[in-house]
């Protein structure tokens, strides 16, 4: 176990060694057991031992980017959670969502949040949006062993690029593959089990330069379509008042749409689609 953070003695040398601004690199030296992807796993396929998080969509809009995720986690044919949250702010100007093994994914988000904050505090400045995406790719790469055994995690990363010359292109989206490959997506992207259906919906409705408000509606609608055809994606749950999480990243920072607002958007989509009422 790492010493220093709960013992009253002198800080170990690893704390005072100058150089790295990366929290992950520091953890590797100070407490490697806290890193995801460093654990020894039992042999065999582990894909059914833990809940899976499902569909996330991201849409580039005028002046920012919108990311939305449904609220379901599944274990085989069971619903493991109806109200899991899978979209989070990564830092003040970027968003991250995960699909795949929920536990590993949430741990990765937490580590990524600390990684960005740590860099900011040590260096006195933030990483560029591309720098952040590259850090995330490294984390995915380190999880490859676990991914091969069924504990795969795929993130979707999007943010407001403070270095962008043109406000219309400041909202950017990055997708990743299991091996740590990183891909800049132009207009929109979806990941997870329902991504096929969500993307099919998005490609028909997306128009370049749409407003953030329209993008939020489009995101919820694409998740509705994904839930329609994919059992692992949850639709709006009117009875329990559980609705997708929609977040935006703009020049003003990241914001989560209020539940009342997502409820209103979901309500209007349901009304539009109800032909037998």
């Amino acid at each position: 176990m790492a010493t220093g953070f709960d013992s009253p003695g002198r800080l170990p040398a690893v704390f005072t060694t100058p150089g790295s601004s990366s929290f992950t690199e520091f953890l590797t030296a100070a407490a490697p057991e806290l890193l995801p992807g460093r654990r020894v796993l039992p042999a065999g396929d582990l894909s059914d031992v833990a809940p899976h998080a499902t569909t996330i969509v991201a849409i580039a809009a005028d002046g920012g980017v919108v990311m939305a995720g449904d609220r379901r986690a599944t274990m085989g044919n069971m619903i493991a959670s109806r109200d899991i949250e899978k979209v989070y702010p990564a830092d003040a100007y970027s968003l991250i969502g995960i699909a795949g093994t929920a536990g590993v994914g949430l741990e990765m988000i937490k580590l990524f949040q600390v990684e960005l904050e740590h860099y900011e505090k040590i260096e006195g400045t933030s990483l560029t949006l591309d720098g952040k995406a590259n850090r995330l790719a490294t984390m995915i790469r380190n999880n490859l062993g676990a991914a091969m055994q069924g504990l795969a995690v795929i993130p979707l990363f999007a943010g407001f690029d403070l270095d962008a010359a043109d406000l219309g292109r400041a909202g950017r989206i990055f997708s990743f593959d299991i091996a740590g490959g990183i891909y800049a997506e132009k207009e929109f992207h979806a990941i997870g089990s329902g991504s096929l259906f969500a993307k099919a919906a998005l490609k028909k409705r997306y128009t370049p330069g749409l407003s953030l408000e329209d993008a939020a509606v489009l995101a919820v609608e694409s998740l509705y379509d994904a839930a329609d055809d994919d059992t692992a994606t949850g639709g709006p749950d009117i009875a329990r008042g559980i609705f997708p999480i929609v977040m935006t990243a703009t020049a003003e920072g990241t914001t989560r749409l209020a539940d009342a607002e997502t409820a209103r958007i979901a309500g209007s989509i349901i009304a539009e689609r109800s032909h037998h009422a």
Binding site: F5, F15, T16, F26, A31, E117
Partner: peptide, 13 residues
Amino acid sequence: AAGVRMADLRGYS
């Protein structure tokens, strides 16, 4: 820097 590392490690774990 040592303080930031200590605080972040503690907060993370």
